[in-house]
Amino acid sequence: MYLGENIPKLGFGFMRLPMIGRVVDIEQTKEMVDLFMSKGFSYFDSSWGYVGSEEAMKTSLVDRYPRESFQIATKCPAWVVKTEEEAKNMILASLKRIGVDYIDFYMFHNMGERRTKYFDDFGMWDYVQELKEKGLIRHMGFSIHDKADAIDKILTDHPEIEFVQFQLNYADWESSSIEARKCYEVSLKHNTPIVVMEPLKGGVLANPVDSVKRIFKEANPEASVASWGIRYAASLDNIITVLSGMSSIEQVRDNVSYMEHFKPLNEIERTVIEEAQKEFSKIVSIPCTSCEYCLEGCPQKINIPKVLDAYNQKMIHNDLLGAQHKYQFAIILDDLSGSGGKASDCTACGNCEEVCTQHINIIENMKTISDELETQDNNIIETFKAITEKQKN
């Protein structure tokens, strides 16, 4: 028996809610919550940093259902604030905004790389333990987009961690940048149960390239392509639940149709997934292994591996909008630390190409990426800073 074993294997991610302009469509969200709950599901995931999400959770769920009928998960992105007081106040703000007396699953949001240090410096580990003792938090965990070694170190340093949340899907299972399989194996090694995020890779695997889509449709014309991704993750051992960031009532209907009476993948279906994985491996992409040898010599401090990884979103999945968002987010994190540059800042000095173990034409790629991924009408960094200031207030 592990933590969350009896929780249904489909969770509702409150990050991609339906919108009317810039405001959450509360009436449709209520309809989605009602259908989700009526089918026996109960796990809802949010974050202090998802604008409008926690408030929508209160209105659509907490104010309308008995507290014992659902589980709330939310997160603290301590790395977006400057002081210990601000970081600790995030937890209290989440409790107030959601309108609950306790949070079932509380996470440090997006740990790894430079961000982990903020939680250490602000004394968040001891603080959350204190809140657990007071009954304000039931279970303590963290979400992460880093690699397996980072998860291993955090779980080794903090055995009090009760669960972990990371990206896992069939397309990223052997990815050198995501390391889904390795992250999964590390979690098993530490006997730490898992909440799966991005089982559909931000929606990309709900509508993959035609060659992959064809494999699934030939195997089962009646099943949605999305169902293969959700069921793949839910079929693994030690899974608390699999989050789906649903944006419409139609997506909820589809997900609950095959997860209400969930059946793990059988051997034939696993073979179909393997065929899809092989097809993904044929798709042309930039072969960066994220060794980071290129970083030290870059005079513009461009995070070359992250920039290349963002462009692969377009090359592999033909997802230009997703690639732009991924690129912008990478630039945000580096800019906020004062150490980042954009692809368009490249001076073509060639230092990176001299040390690249994969012999990638980085200079040419930087030019292509600046042309295709940098949008002129959206100062994403200033927008992010403005949102952060609004959240603090």
Rank of each mutant, 00 (worst) to 15 (best):
L265G: 07
V209Y: 04
I239K: 00
D377E: 14
A148V: 06
T368S: 10
S176R: 05
T368E: 13
A310C: 08
H145Q: 12
A234F: 06
I137N: 07
V164C: 03
I230F: 15
S38M: 09
K96M: 03
V225K: 07
V62L: 10
D149C: 04
C352T: 06
V209D: 15
V256D: 10
V62W: 02
P77Y: 02
K30N: 15
C76F: 09
K390R: 08
E374C: 07
A73L: 01
F12H: 11
I369Q: 00
S337Y: 03
D63T: 11
S143R: 13
Q165A: 10
D371N: 06
C356G: 09
P264H: 05
Q328R: 14
N361F: 08
L168W: 12
V51S: 12
S143Q: 10
N318F: 14
E85K: 04
S42D: 09
E113P: 08
I151N: 05
R138C: 10
R253S: 15
S42W: 00
V164Y: 03
D377N: 12
I332L: 09
F166M: 02
V62Y: 02
L168A: 14
E160P: 12
E85Y: 02
I72G: 00
R253D: 06
L168I: 13
C183A: 08
M1S: 10
E353L: 04
Y258F: 15
L35D: 07
I137Y: 06
S69D: 14
L265T: 02
A171P: 12
L336T: 04
A148P: 03
Q71E: 10
M366V: 04
G135S: 07
Y65D: 13
R270V: 13
E353I: 01
E54Q: 05
I151K: 00
D309N: 10
Y170H: 01
I103N: 00
D120F: 15
I151W: 02
R138N: 15
A150G: 09
I230Q: 07
K39V: 13
D152F: 11
A343D: 06
I151F: 05
A330L: 01
C183S: 14
L61P: 02
E185P: 02
M90V: 11
I154A: 02
V100H: 01
H145P: 11
M15P: 04
L200P: 02
I72C: 03
I7R: 11
N220T: 00
I98L: 04
L95R: 00
S235Y: 11
G99Y: 01
G141P: 10
P8H: 00
E31M: 07
T388R: 09
D377M: 10
V80K: 00
V284T: 07
D335Q: 13
Q71S: 05
Y258W: 08
N220M: 07
I215R: 00
I239C: 01
C183W: 11
I144T: 15
I362R: 06
C349V: 09
T83Y: 07
V80R: 02
V242R: 02
S175C: 09
F119S: 12
